[in-house]
Design a protein around this nucleic acid. Sequence first.
RNA 1: GUCCCUAUCGUCCAGUGGCCUAGGACAUCGCCCUUUCACGGCGGUAACGAGGGUUCGACUCCCUCUGGGGACGCCA
Length: 475
Amino acid sequence: MLRVRFAPSPTGYLHIGSARTFIFNWMYARRNGGTMILRIDDTDVERNSEASLNSIFEGLNWLGLGWDEQYRQSERLDLHRRMAQAIFEKGHAYRDFTPAQTGSVDAEEKNEGGQWVANAGMRELNVTESDARATAGEPFVLRFRVPRGEGRAVKFEDGVYGAQSKEADDIEDFALLRSNAMPTYHMASCADDADLKISQIIRGQDHLSNTFKHILIFEALGVAVPKFAHLPLLIAPDGAKLSKRKHGPVVSVTTYRDHGFLPHGYVNFLCLLGWSPKDNREQMSRQEIQDIFSFEGINRANAVVNFTEADPIDPKALWLNGQILRSMPIAELVPLVKQRLETAGLDFPEDMGQLESIVDIIRARYQTLDDFPTRGLPYFADEFPMEPAAMARLEEAGARELVRKLGVRLEASADFSEPAIEAELRKLAAEKGVKAGVLINGSRAALTGQAVGPGAFHLFTAIGRQRSIARLKGV
RNA sequence: GUCCCUAUCGUCCAGUGGCCUAGGACAUCGCCCUUUCACGGCGGUAACGAGGGUUCGACUCCCUCUGGGGACGCCA
């Protein structure tokens, strides 16, 4: 039975890279009829926060993909400790009584003298002394006894990166339990992976070198070693790993949501970052992606998420979202737009058909949900700004006067259908000896305050009889 | 510093020794469509990091270098 997991730590909001890891896990599980597990890795009591836990769920729920089982590591500490104890009893771990380092070790200091593998003397401590000091209450950290000096290599086959190998001598004696008896990430993660029968671990490439340690743990535990697949990292335009401190809120999933992205627009975009269907397809439904998702399509090099300080959204993501926005069933789009309008405190037609036709007319030139309450303001409110370019349209060739006149005529006419309006407009233009364009552009300016937009005749019906006439006469 | 990963247009991908005069998409520039704009259509600019091999033939395979990323915590 195929089982995969996504294991975020609640130490910040849902990161764009984490979201992609979640999506790839999800696609892989769904593609292969497996089980998707959400596991909250909250063993770092110091850094965990309820707020970030909420924001992770918020982000995940917005993606709308869901999961099958859910766990919290903090509720499974006994299991972690039991497994650590088992490793210790088998002789694969030892107590290290070296006092914890105080303060944060800065990078330069840490790198002095090359790689650290173990604290002197502790690995060799005999059982009697170790037991005595532990019984006396001296604090210790439990470390894995990495097989050393045996010329042993740890190997595995990565689903994305292929054959991987590392000399055990190059792996340090990593910690399993802290001196406060809390499991470390390595211990908790492996214990849970074993207990939850995770069969395939899909995670970021930043864990590639941890994998050798994890294999050591699985082996010491005497359980089946899961398969691994590591994903290339998402990096910033400056080449650095995406971080909140350096790159700000762009790394958060909520940034895209708040900019009016469709959940699937975001999912689609993220899937294209580091994965390819190999046939040049870009816009794909969830089902399409799910049907062909495989590790073969995953690239090995890191991918840059394109953004600038001024514009936090990747242009390709924006384009993709626009494509989806204008091609999705209108009935699915309207509720999302409605919600957006409500949030903005705007009015919209009660009549579903009317609302649908407005949305359908304007969505061709919009890219996000956010465009409806902003650029689409004139369609949902009577107060809207008159853009300078629109104003210019009204100033030329007596347009303003003609537009008013058109308003009067339309008011007098019972027929407010598009053909009738067009006929009326052209007739008026002919009478006054001006080009129809003057009236068409003038009307658009009067109706929306914008110099650009949908075809003018669609506009009248979208805005509605009452409003249109009032706006024409009021210029 | 040690170890691991990686390298095609500005960006995201395609390319698994001859189909490559290197393809698609975004962005960008131009034209068409549109009495506006967007959508759409057509076209342009734009890349195999460097040096060695292997081979009849390298973007593709090997080595070195260089660049980029990651790991090296009682963080995850």
